[in-house]
């Protein structure tokens, strides 16, 4: 178990960087707003970053429970299916997808 001082150090780092990332752009906005590179990156970045996070999170899940690889892939398919079929309701899609994975993993692979 990590020490309390380690946990507090993590909290301090997390707080400083998160707030800085949210605050600094407002301070330098005047200079950045018009630049072509910033406008392009603002459009291009989000979808790619989210896709990378989705894939690495899936990789993490599979690494933790390698025997559940097929359950994880099935659950991703269910998540996407529910999301597209039931009007993009995030909580429903995430809930159903996660339930599928958790139930399969805990009941079928003992």
């Amino acid at each position: 178990m990590p020490s309390t001082s380690y946990l507090v150090a993590v909290l301090a780092i997390v707080f400083t960087i998160t707030v800085a990332l949210r605050a600094v752009p407002f301070a330098v906005l005047g200079r950045l707003r018009g630049s072509a590179i910033v406008r392009r990156l603002a459009v291009w970045m989000p979808v790619g970053i989210l896709a990378i996070l989705a894939v690495t999170a899936l990789h993490g899940t599979i690494t933790t429970d390698p025997h559940g690889t097929w359950y994880a892939l099935l659950a991703v398919a269910v998540t996407i299916g529910v999301h597209l079929a039931f009007g993009r309701r995030t909580i429903l899609s995430v809930g159903v997808g996660t339930a599928v994975y958790v139930v399969l993993l805990n009941t079928l692979s003992t």
Partner: peptide, 13 residues
């Protein structure tokens, strides 16, 4: 087990 899948599902959505 497997609750961390919520993160993967959230990012996918």
């Amino acid at each position: 087990k497997g609750l961390e899948f919520a993160l993967c599902a959230l990012f996918t959505v």
